[in-house]
Design a protein around this nucleic acid. Structure first.
Length: 585
RNA sequence: GCGCCCAUAGCUCAACUGGAUAGAGCAUCGCCCUUCUAAGGCGAGGGUUGCAGGUUCGAGUCCUGCUGGGCGUGCCA
């Protein structure tokens, strides 16, 4: 419908040019919006106001000039000038229900569009360090990233979802050392856990599995392990120095066994994360290993490239990248004075690699605490002569959890945090996915556990699911009476629909495709959530206003056809958000 | 100190990218189940959009300066 009006307005503008009331060079952006107030018709355009200057007449006069040149269309019942110069379009009632046919013929494809034009987009999200289970903070990134990915796919992008696994570097050594100490404790060695180790209980589970599979193969006496190690923090030492020494000791004593311990820990945690996300309805096409980047020499190659571009210099024994040449606050280290490459070095290589895989758009979903990182990654892309604008970093703010009216304090280092798995078990996947995604990502959000958990009218997810279930049950009941829905008869009798609730529903259905397009181009799945609430409300209003299963076959089929179109759109929208559409509740 | 993000009804949040009288849910107060699921519907009250300027036909939205909060500002990841 919008496109029809757009065409008409376009023709009117051309006619204005022919009549020499408007310069040929003028090409106004034709903007059509949905009206908030029914008195303003169904759709409105501000075109006349936009053209005020170009035409040199007051906006309302321009509006009249446009109306005089509008082609006549059956779908448009009436056009009015209103307010400061708005053009208000009133749709013909018959035309309002055309959308129902579209929905029911396109089915799950209804709402798809081509704003993506088949461009290849890589959505990288979650990418939590594999050093422990996912917590609720990761949950928001997971829900958001997954919804953005399916939103983009719906909008005509070719989407690949990727999880970047930080399986290289010192944190992996700390993980191995933490696991080894727990393992030694399980073997009966009296050895204190390092202050800088990963404290969580899950390390015990990995150690237990290690005992199970390898017996005492990695056991060394506490005396041997601790011999001449510096003091740990509780004993007045430095925890960083201590754990580095402990790591070195582990490598020396375990030799090849060290890799085995590390791999056991890494595999166990990765598998846990993978299962956790799968149960959350979040899957990936690729789990991209940082270590594989290192091993295949891509990190060295990327540094080499920067060197050739003259963007690397040495200072204090380290290699620095001149990111400040590209707007970063200061230069950044890529190779430390001890020869180790930084995380940033891997990230440069990773992003370069993404583009080499011929993606047109790169989307990174990051926690907002990493925002300071954006300029240096873009700087690296620019230095490598790739387009920094191809990278779109979407920042997700933290969610604070509330229970019993109190904010839950969380700290990762002490292992005191609510895991994503706990959250799922507590409130269920549907409610969790919906709650995360119903807020704009850059908005700080409060996650009310009691509300998400409550199976009541306070919980918005049930409101939408209930609308879907209601439609299913109505259709079932009609079928039970021998009045199975006849869509053909329904579509042929749409003129039977005269109630306001019915017209409102049809207009809501027509808004779905544009909601998808808008939400996709802004990376805002929350718009889908709000739309679905509106659509569900329209259905509930209709349900209370009219009886669907009536004796009159043509009216009955028309009504059931309308609600089955609503059901289809509810399904399509919920699928994007990763929320189930139950048939009964 | 500097940089980025945020501030909208009592609470949690929207507002179609600058449009008409700023909207929902929850909470409060009225109504509606012998009729397809009341996890529902209809209605009422509730606002100087943090403050002060500016840009223009028009600002919650854009620009500047304040106030208040979050985050960042490592040869950590």
């Amino acid at each position: 419908m919008k496109s029809i009006i757009e065409q008409c307005l376009h023709q009117a503008v051309e006619q204005l040019k022919q009549d020499e009331l408007l310069a040929d060079s003028a090409s106004p952006r034709i903007h059509i919006e949905n009206t908030k107030d029914k008195a303003h018709g169904d759709l409105a355009s501000n075109l006349a106001m936009m053209l005020t200057k170009a035409v040199g007449q007051p906006p309302r006069d321009v509006a009249q000039m446009i109306i005089d040149r509008l082609p006549v269309r059956a779908e448009i019942a009436k056009v009015e000038i209103a307010g400061p110069g708005f053009l208000n379009f009133f749709m013909a009632d018959e035309a309002k229900f055309d959308i129902v046919t579209e929905v029911l013929t396109q089915k799950e494809a209804f709402g798809r569009c081509q704003v993506g034009q088949g461009r290849r987009v890589l959505v990288e999200f979650v990418s939590a360090n594999p050093t422990g289970p996912l917590h609720v903070g990761h949950g928001r990134g997971a829900a958001y990233g997954a919804s953005v990915a399916s939103l983009l796919a719906t909008a005509g992008f070719k989407v690949q979802k990727e999880y970047y696994v930080n399986d290289a570097g010192r944190q992996m050594d700390i993980l191995a050392a933490s696991t080894w100490v727990r393992y030694l404790q399980r073997c009966g060695e009296s050895i204190a856990f390092p202050a800088n180790g990963y404290q969580g209980d899950y390390i015990y589970d990995i150690a237990d599995a290690l005992v199970e599979s390898h017996g005492e193969a990695f056991r060394h006496s506490a005396e041997t392990v601790l011999a001449s190690l510096p003091a740990d923090e509780p004993d007045g030492g430095d925890k960083e120095t201590y754990i580095d020494a402990l790591i070195e000791r582990a490598k020396t004593l375990l030799e090849n066994g060290y890799e085995a311990v590390l791999k056991a820990a890494l595999d166990a945690i990765l598998q846990d994360i993978q299962e956790d996300l799968a149960e959350f309805g979040v899957t990936f096409d690729e789990w991209f290993s940082e270590r594989s980047l290192m091993d295949s020499g891509l990190v060295d190659a990327a540094i080499e490239k920067l060197q050739q571009a003259g963007k690397i210099y040495e200072q204090n024994g380290a290699l620095w990248f001149r990111s400040s040449d590209y707007g970063d606050e200061k230069d950044r280290v890529v190779v430390r004075d001890n020869g180790l490459k930084t995380y940033f070095a891997s990230d440069i290589a990773y992003h370069f690699n993404k583009l080499e895989r011929e993606f047109d758009v790169l989307i990174d979903v990051w926690g907002a605490d990493h925002h300071g990182y954006v300029p240096r990654v873009k700087a690296a892309m620019a230095a490598l002569e790739t387009d920094p604008d191809a990278l779109q970093v979407l920042l997700v703010q933290f969610a604070s959890l509330w229970r019993g009216g109190e904010k839950l304090a969380m700290s990762t280092r002490s292992g005191q945090f609510v895991t994503l798995r706990q959250l799922r078990h507590d409130v269920g996947t549907d409610a969790a996915r919906f709650f995360y995604v119903q807020r704009k990502s850059e908005q700080h959000m409060d996650f009310d556990l009691d509300l998400a958990k409550s199976q009541s009218n306070e919980n918005p997810i049930y409101y939408i699911q209930y609308a879907h279930a209601r439609i299913c049950q109505v259709l079932n009941q009609a079928a039970d009476k021998g009045w199975a829905l006849d869509i053909e008869a329904g579509l042929a009798n749409m003129d039977q629909l005269e109630a306001d609730a019915e017209k409102d529903l049809a207009i809501l259905l027509a808004k779905y495709p544009e909601t998808i397009a808008r939400a996709a181009s802004a990376y805002e799945p929350h718009q889908i959530a709000y739309y679905l609430k509106d659509l569900a409300q329209g259905l509930h209003t209709y349900y209370n206003a009219c009886q669907f299963v009536v004796d009159d076959a043509s009216l009955r089929n028309a009504r059931l056809t309308l609600v089955s179109a609503v059901r289809q759109v509810l399904q399509n929208g919920l699928a994007i958000l990763g929320v189930a559409a139950p048939e009964r509740m």
